[in-house]
Each structure stands twice: as structure tokens, then as C-alpha cells.
Amino acid sequence: MRKIFFISASIIEYDGRLRELIEVSKSIGETYYLTRSNSVTPIDEHHIIFTSRGPSTYINFLLFCFKTARKIGKFDVIWADNRKALIPSFLIARLRKHPILIQDARELYMFGDVRHFIGKIGCLVEIMLNRKFDIIICANKERAEIMKRYYHLRMMPLVFENVRKLEFDGTVDDAAFEERYQMSKDKARWKIISTSGCDLDRGIEQLVEAVGRLGEEYSLYIFGNSSMKQEDFIERKIMEIEYKNIHIFGPLKQDELKYAIGMCDIGVVNYHAKDMNNKYCASGKLYEFIFEGVPVITTENPSLKALCERFEVGISCNDYQSAIRKLTEEYEYYQGKAREMSKKISVKSNRAGLKHHVVKALETIERDRSGKYPEVV
């Protein structure tokens, strides 16, 4: 059995794609996975938690990766989750007997799209190291084609769609949840949920204005991480215009998020189109809504628009107010289509597809490195 060292700097409780990738990795081989976590208790005996915080966090992360690699001992594959894991994965591989390198490239930020210095460094790291990895995975076909051209890759990246379904883990306290969010006490006919926080670039200001103008029959629940500056801006706007139907909260764990979505009628999936990463978004949020039978309103990004048009699970339109009105007027139709799609897609099949392609690629690389080929009869 292959031994895999999976490296991620993400918080596992809040990262659905990370959890899915780890499950695929476990199905391929014995997987030791290093992640951040809100808990001090590992999920299982192979889970290693990185806990450092502060200005030297990334340096500490690098050192922790090296220390963990020594403890694990020999392994056949290093799987890097996103750009922060690229450097430790590559350096550890250089110090070992060249384990096979896999990278999940979940972001698609181009050097010219990024304004801040740290982001540009990250782009340069990807430009230098992406071609050094044996297998690259991304989130949709559009991204795969762009990456192959931009990074001059030898092979087309594998595609692993963000098909994910929220699960209850048994820790959600219904009474405590209701006491905090009071969603069941909301008398609005239509409850709308957005899980992108107060990100102004994604059009949250326009969404707040649209729902506010629609009146008391509509409520908007905003969950997710936000900067203090952006959250303060939206809260001031709500107070100034005296909207009573907008509610802002922080991020939720997956069982809480599943509960919240189940209490709502419409899910909003919103991205901007100012850079390639957002323009060609591969949203797992959309699938989270669909699996709960909740139709969606999305921005007009190509991948979101194509999915809405193909499966008719919602409306792709940047005019939130008209989209909400149209969807509620034909709600039973769109809800039926969302439920229909939820029966056609499968998290298990999505995992199995990636496993098949990764194993096939691993076998080819292992055969090429060993020089052993099957005999031709």
C-alpha cells in the first residue's frame, strides 16, 4: 500500500474541498494528513494538527512540515493542498528519494490580477513550482485549460469538481442554534441565505439593497468570514436605511451550515469577475444548496451560468431583485429541479472519479521511474 503525506494550511472544519481530498487520498493509500484545526483533538491517529498563530506562522508551518515528515518516516507520495503547501512539499521531496508530488490548485490567481505583495509572491511560487509537480488537480475544465497554457504544463490537470454535501456530525445543538440565530421565529415568507460573508467585491452591498427593498416578506441571512472594515460598512448601511430584514453572522461549522440552509428557501452564490480565479469560479457552495433541495441565485460567471441553464436549478443574474422575484414566482419549478439534480449527482461518484484518474497517473509514473513495463504478448 502506498504511503501518502498530505499537507494543508487550511482549517479542516471550514474547508469542504479539503475534507473531500483527504477522503480520496485515504482511499488510495495510508494517509497522514497535516492540517489546521479549531480542535486540539485529532480526527484519527493519522491526523496531525498545526496550531501556531502570529506573524511567524508560515515559517513555523514550514518547520512543522519538516518535523512531521521526519516523524512519519518513508512515504511514496506528497499531496500538497493549495499554494501554501507547495514550498514545504517540494523541499521535502528534494530531501527524500523523490516521492511523487501531487498538487491541488484550488486557486487561479494570475500575477497581473493580484495587487498585494504577498499575493504576487504566491503567484511567483506557483509559476516556478507548478511544473515540478507530477500530478495537478483543479476544480473545473475551464481552469484546467487555462492552467495548462499559462504554466506550460506537460499534462492537462485532472478535474475534481467541488461536489460536496454537508453532513450532521451530531454536535449541533438545535436549541442553542435557534437561540442565537432565531431563524424559526422569522415570519418572512422567503428566507435567503448567503455564505460569502460581507465581501464587497462579490456584490453583497447590492444583495443587501435588493432584499431590503423587497420588504418584510423577505429575509437575508449572511454567514461567513468578513474583514471588520467590510462588515462595519454593511452594518452601517443597514442601520442608515433601517432595513429590518438583514441578519449578519460569522462562519458556521458544516453541521450548523446544513441546519441553516435547511431553514432557508433560496441560496445565493456570488462571485465577481475581476480576476480569473473568481470569473471561472468552481463553487462548492452551489452544491451545498442543491443537496439540501434549495434553488439558487448566482452571479453571471460562466461556470455558474452554464450550470443554472443546464439543470435549471436557479437563476444566473446580476440583478438580484429581479432574479429573486422571478425565482419566487416560479419557486416550485426551481425547487423541483434542485431536488432532481441532487439525485443525479453523487459525492461518492465524484470521489471515485478522482481516485481512478490519480491511481492511473501514479501507476504510470511508478512504471516510468522503475523502468518496468508489462510484457507485450
Rank of each mutant, 00 (worst) to 15 (best):
K285A: 00
R164P: 14
R106M: 10
T328A: 08
D232F: 15
H152I: 15
K244N: 15
Y243N: 08
R213G: 10
N82D: 04
V163E: 05
E256Q: 12
H272C: 05
R180H: 11
F64W: 02
F133V: 03
R339C: 05
E312I: 04
T35P: 12
H356D: 12
M341L: 10
E216D: 11
E340M: 05
A323Y: 01
L252I: 09
M128C: 10
D76C: 13
K344D: 10
E217G: 06
C123S: 07
V313Y: 01
C317H: 06
L21T: 14
Q335M: 07
F64A: 14
E235K: 12
D134V: 15
I87A: 11
L18S: 06
I121S: 11
I127S: 13
F168N: 04
V296N: 07
D81Q: 15
R17H: 07
N350F: 09
G197P: 06
G293M: 07
Y373Q: 09
S184V: 14
D134L: 14
C138P: 05
V269Q: 02
E309C: 07
V40L: 15
E330M: 03
I290H: 03
L220W: 00
A139C: 15
E292L: 12
A176Y: 04
K244T: 14
V294G: 03
A9T: 12
P295G: 06
D319S: 00
R236K: 10
F289K: 01
V163I: 10
A144G: 02
M128H: 09
